[in-house]
């Protein structure tokens, strides 16, 4: 049962992150996920200091607020200061993350939070974080409910906003000409990424969130030239990675999140090498005529 809950948590996070990650990659904004997942740290700490508890809601609110603040700052520096997006991302998230680190170290004695927990998370604790009703009934691990709800929101968001997300990613100028607000869809996507990162964060940690945001979509991108297929492959990969990652960790007695991230990387590498071999093989069997 423990294995089941952990694998399910991993799969939920992987699928949610992966679906959004597809659009991040296509918008050439992969690093935004990285930025948001780090920028939420000060929000979490401040929410903790204000509420004095590790309840989910204040954490989500605090983290969501700084996550969105980060995306606003990135857009602002990019538009107003004419800074390249990657530079704007680099400046913004390191700054916010550092504030979070300082807050943690200043209040270190008083709060039950540490950098390791935030960065690496501890997916192995998911099965003991149970949701118990006042009547005493045990409804299973709390994160499963939260993550399922977030996955549902993300799926509905992509289902109903599919054509707008696709068009604003592919050709923003044409989208604006049709009267579709590119800014609105940018921020909706960013809000979805913030929500996902923040809710995944406490169970699996920032590193795995980033790995899931970009790894499976990047692998799927190599495998297909169809957006719907890319989303489907990403979701399937997420589940496979979660299962294989868990058993690898079990077998090696290593960090579960770490193993899942390693499997993500291995999947990408395998597909990449396979594609290279296929291309080279094609060239050898059907040599193209020399161009010069």
């Amino acid at each position: 049962m423990i294995a089941f809950w952990i694998i399910l948590t991993g799969a939920l996070v992987a699928v949610t992150c992966g679906l959004l990650g597809c659009f991040l990659i296509l918008r050439k904004m992969s690093m935004v996920g990285d930025a948001i997942s780090h920028a939420v740290l000060p929000g979490i700490v401040i929410a903790f200091l204000l509420s004095g508890s590790r309840e989910t809601l204040p954490m989500l609110l605090g983290a969501g607020a700084t996550g969105l603040l980060a995306t606003f700052l990135i857009e602002y520096f990019h538009r107003r200061a004419n800074l390249q997006t990657d530079a704007a991302i680099g400046v913004t998230f390191t700054f916010l993350f550092a504030i979070g680190i300082i807050l943690i170290s200043v209040f270190a004695g008083k709060i039950d939070l540490d950098q390791d927990c935030v960065l690496y998370g501890e997916i192995a604790y998911v099965p003991i974080d149970l949701w118990v009703t006042p009547g005493g009934t045990i409804l299973g691990p709390r994160p499963i409910y939260i993550l399922s709800a977030v996955l549902l929101i993300v799926i509905l968001f992509i289902k109903f906003g599919y054509k707008e997300l696709k068009l604003t990613s592919f050709d923003p100028a044409f989208a604006s000409a049709l009267g579709i607000s590119t800014a609105l869809w940018h921020y909706l996507l960013m809000a979805a990424v913030s929500l996902t990162t923040v809710s995944s964060f406490e169970s699996v940690g920032a590193i795995l969130v980033i790995a899931f945001l970009i790894g499976p979509p990047a692998t799927a991108y190599l495998m297909t030239h169809d957006l719907k297929q890319m989303l489907a492959i990403t979701a399937a990969l997420g589940i496979v990675i979660s299962v294989v990652g868990y058993w690898m960790a079990y077998w090696l007695n290593a960090s579960i999140a770490g193993c899942m991230a390693v499997i993500t990387g291995l999947c990408f590498a395998t597909v990449f090498v396979y594609q290279r071999i296929r291309v080279t093989h094609k060239r050898l069997t059907h040599p193209e005529p020399a161009t010069d």
Partner: peptide, 29 residues
């Protein structure tokens, strides 16, 4: 009643969509 054809170089032609998908985008409005 207004249509716009941006410069061809303004988009990423490696985007995972088919020719028909792109033409259908004209119907989104």
């Amino acid at each position: 009643r207004v249509s716009y054809v941006p410069q061809r170089e303004s988009v990423d032609w490696d985007f995972p969509v088919s020719v028909l998908d792109v033409v259908l985008m004209g119907r989104y409005g």
